[in-house]
């Protein structure tokens, strides 16, 4: 067996353990090195399994499709009821769209800050954004419950999901601050939350 034949035979007997292969490998350092390198590649490849995390967009889309197809049965949530939004805030209802706008503005700020910025500065930029994910959620739910009780569960679930997406996306951004996909996912998550607030406000003003 010569070197070319050895190479061709590795397709069939990849570990190089046939009698003919072993005879050739004993006398050929180049082919021995080749076999070692192919084994190294195969071993390294196994480490690549499950290495990547999909963006939060994937679950959002799946969840949306599941709802559209009626595959998800909404779950009842046993959270304690809070005083009504209107009673607590009265003429301050304008805070809801303002909160939505603030979320959008923060999102835009994050995107701008994602351009070439030192990592330490980027981390600082993200602090207020992370806190904003809890902004007035209970008030929004109370408002929805007051105007359209049947929609409360839906909004509650949507809020929970979108907050989870923000946390997930923020985690990915924290791990890879310079990854544009991660930042885009975070922006998308904030925009979805902003849309939820706007939808709730539209409903309450009707």
């Amino acid at each position: 067996m010569n070197c070319v034949e050895l190479q061709q035979s590795l397709a069939e007997v990849e570990d190089g353990n046939s009698l003919e292969q072993r005879a050739h490998l004993r006398s050929c350092p180049a082919c021995s090195a080749l076999l070692r390198e192919l084994r190294l590649i195969a071993a390294a490849a196994a480490e690549l399994q499950s290495a990547n995390e999909p963006s939060p967009r994937v679950w959002q889309s799946i969840q949306f499709a599941l709802r559209e197809e009626g595959l998800i049965r909404p779950q009842r949530n046993a959270r304690p009821t809070l005083p009504s939004f209107s009673a607590r805030w009265g003429s301050m209802r304008w805070l809801v769209p303002a909160a939505a706008m603030l979320l959008l503005a923060l999102g835009i700020y994050v995107r701008r800050a994602s351009l070439p910025t030192p990592l330490t500065q980027q981390a600082k930029v993200l602090v207020p954004v992370a806190n904003a994910s809890d902004l007035n959620d209970d008030d929004l739910l109370q408002e929805v419950a007051a105007d359209a009780p049947a929609m409360r569960t839906q909004y509650e679930e949507n809020l929970r999901q979108v907050n989870e997406s923000i946390r997930d996306a923020q985690g990915v951004v924290d791990e890879s601050p310079n990854d544009p996909d991660a930042r885009r996912s975070l922006m998308d998550a904030y925009q979805q939350k902003s849309m939820l607030f706007e939808m709730a406000m539209d409903r309450s003003l009707q």
């Binding site: 799946i62 969840q63 599941l66 595959l71 998800i72 049965r73 909404p74 779950q75 679930e157």
Partner: peptide, 9 residues
Amino acid sequence: KQGDAEAFR
């Protein structure tokens, strides 16, 4: 199988 959203998640 019963349509539990949390289980899907």
